[in-house]
Design a protein around this nucleic acid. Sequence first.
DNA 1: CCCGTCTTCGAAAACGTTTGTCAAATCATG
DNA 2: CATGATTTGACAAACGTTTTCGAAGACGGG
Lengths: 328, 328
Amino acid sequence: MATIKDIARIAGVAPSVVSRALNNKYGVKESTRKRIVAIAKELGYHPNSAARSLVTRRTETIGVVMADISEPYFSQIVKGMEYVATQTGYTLLFSNSYENVEHGRVLRKMISGERVDGLVIIGSNIQEKGFIAALAEQEIPFVLVERNLPDPKVNCVWVDNVQGGYLATRFLLDKGHRRIGHIAGNLHFQVALDRIEGYKRALEEAGIAFCEELVVSGNFLTEGGYRAMKELLKAGCTAVFAANDAMAYGALQAIAEEGLAVPDDVAMVGFDDLEFSALTHPPLTTVRQPRYEMGRRSLEILTAILRGEEAGGVKVCFQPEITVRRSA
Amino acid sequence: MATIKDIARIAGVAPSVVSRALNNKYGVKESTRKRIVAIAKELGYHPNSAARSLVTRRTETIGVVMADISEPYFSQIVKGMEYVATQTGYTLLFSNSYENVEHGRVLRKMISGERVDGLVIIGSNIQEKGFIAALAEQEIPFVLVERNLPDPKVNCVWVDNVQGGYLATRFLLDKGHRRIGHIAGNLHFQVALDRIEGYKRALEEAGIAFCEELVVSGNFLTEGGYRAMKELLKAGCTAVFAANDAMAYGALQAIAEEGLAVPDDVAMVGFDDLEFSALTHPPLTTVRQPRYEMGRRSLEILTAILRGEEAGGVKVCFQPEITVRRSA
DNA sequence: CCCGTCTTCGAAAACGTTTGTCAAATCATG
DNA sequence: CATGATTTGACAAACGTTTTCGAAGACGGG
């Protein structure tokens, strides 16, 4: 593998000049730069990133922490992030936290080993408040996705979840439903709480009393949605708002098993608008999160901060929209 | 951030001793090792990975190249890889090739910048034969997933696709179908060709003539499956084997749009057994690929090679099984 | 022709590790 | 106690960059 010294030797010049030439830095004559660049290309030179980041103290890579990259929910966010990463020359380093960022052995390695210049953390849960605070003390910039923290210093991009919950519930209300169940997410996550809040708000606005047994947690997973729906069916309701699409899938399955029809017997609206939601039976009416844009925006913020073009403390709240299909 | 020198100073010892102590190397008294380890823990020391890999010429990270990480097909493979990565202490670095590994700017950076110790390449296409050959010339070990190359030196883990195609078609044959369509994948990929081959073989065995207009390519995407199915419907058939589940989803949609019933009017079997396939309407009968195991196995091979425990040239072929649900 | 300014380049230090070599210290053995 | 063997620790070089600083060269103005 060719090094900067090889190039220097061939070009009859000092290594420092090569470095400057290749990095388009001030102080090298245009003709010699041309010559050096040509030699570098010829040798197929690529800078050794370890050596570089050892001195610059930058790695040009960004760590991305999320619960589980195999969840389809994250795919579009990741794609959006990747778009700006390739634009800006950053490399993305993913790490699954499996629901608990704090326990991330990998995260420690990322930060302490100085492997990443910045971090984006998707969907941290409530209990990790202390951890996030500690992170803020460190020197490493980060942005939270799918979470809004009151701290004015931390960067957040999220979707207005109470508005989303409101929209979903309101939609069902407008269809004439009065007894609307809710399959909530994992209550350790603020998004779950917020969506419940939106649900309550719409109910209240319509003058309908909140009914404890009509909301049951499904833990954000398809299987949980299935179980939750079985319960709701017992409680009896004509419509349900599921806090995410994955649970709505399980719920649809549970409904089908009982021989009931959607939306005639029970209407369903989800949250997220995953790709697959257009393919369920019937296609799912759901609250759309602009996941790709959220990913994009979050990385734009982080790279801007890393480039020193932005001070930090950016808050971006996206507005959800309801995409209506045939399940409600 | 604490360095090895800080520890050395506090412990009253040379930096080299600290290094050896922390890495459990020969030549340091147990008592001083204990002392050093204690200090390191106290300071929250983590080795700077850039510095380390600069001298060791190892990064302890493995690059993973695939078409598009947001495709659900890859999720389980990735999960399997991640399992052994965390076991063995390797970090995974993902890179989307968007169907053309060769064009991967990121890949160049990975290899030439010496950012990765090894590579796993998932689903490279046929045209990239030259590229793979070139890669084999380099010093960097790699394993191909979802592809079997005749070269005895390259490591491959794949599933027996012609057997899979055979199984699917044979299943439909056994159900009494005689006119069976096939929605093929992107013909630049060997897997697509192999699955067609299996389809043909089953047909031949049953004494049914291969019929050109009954196989149409859907490019492995849901939308392509939809379009392909529309064509097949015109050609007329009572069953179809789709080369992957994503296309089967599109096909099911196309069938539903025509007001036909699955499996009564037309039976459907897919390939992959994605998570969603249990949730389609009706649930999809499909050929199962052990994706998690494939990911696991591929990384086991690679890490073994990197650790010097394995010579290379490993070939692992998984046998597909059919998981029958209700679409056929 | 001299002096100051500006441009171009080179030398060297630094980043934080690992590792080979060698000296010192310890220990066992006779 | 002397000797040799063995353990333990120190020193220094090396990995491939970037960056600071200063030297030398070019050049123009007076």
